[in-house]
Amino acid sequence: MSNILVVAEHLEGKLRKATLPTIGFAKKAQALTGGKIIGLVLGHNAASVAAELATAGVDHVILVDSAIYADYLAEAYAPAVAEIAKVKGASIVAAPASTTGKDFLPRAAARMDAGMISDAIEVFSHNGAVAYKRPVWAGNLIARETSTSAITAVTVRMTNFDAPAAGAAAPIETISLGFAAPDDTQFLSFDRVKSSRPELTDAAAIVAGGRGLKSAEAFKMLEELADLIGGAVGASRAAVDSGYAPNDWQIGQTGKIVAPGIYFAVAISGAIQHLAGMKGSKVIVTINKDGEAPIYQISDYGLVADAFKAVPELTAALK
């Protein structure tokens, strides 16, 4: 058997949208390998997540419902994922390239003695084997890799695969595994950045600010513009390091990878680490008073101007 196991990500009883492109990836892989796409939910009181996953394009859903999955821990996830992969004959085990997927999947891969592909942006056939493309070198190079292990673990970049069309509900199978809770690690807390705005990774519009804004207060004018156009607010690493924006807003090689319809880069110079996170955006607008800033080289529209004047003016013009 060569099934594809997709480990779902969920929060507060809801499937996270990051899971959908991973199912999109699984569909493409399935065209090469055949087999079934099996969605896996590890959670506690997570029947609603399983029901949501059942109509998201998978062929089969497995729900492992136990108190030990109530708070996410890699040490609890990895053995469960490896066990289900074995029992269900998976040849590919996929998860979103989120901080959760990046945390537990390598651990599960080591347990399965599986090779692992991080941040897949494409899956294709190479001499009869399944091969993958993934960005390396801060996005300046694309590596093509293939795997020789019986199982391959793959994290999937959210911006490069479409969510499959919703289908008829797949059957849901409940399995209990009987693993004990890990005794050498404890989840203490999750301090969530509260926001009414869309998540960066699925926002259609993003207004992002850099160190040139010089203060956290200055981000308020970006928030105003973002709220007006229904977008999210992002930041460069320099702005986050300077304490102007929370870490969750960071876009770039080590932050979020985004590809919105429109990206406003305000007072961002454009270090390659930042470009790695946003150059897939459809339209890039740069507002920077330094007309020589590297970000202009990848911008569709550039306005050489003082952000403190131009952003409020832009917001007023769009009202």
């Binding site: 592909i117 091969a131 190079l141 694309i142 293939t146 020789t148 529209y301 306005l303």
Partner: peptide, 21 residues
Amino acid sequence: KPAIVGIGYELPPARKAGIKV
């Protein structure tokens, strides 16, 4: 014995600079 085998690289599609307004 490595499980993952590199089969080459490619350069990402270049993005052209646009215009200044």
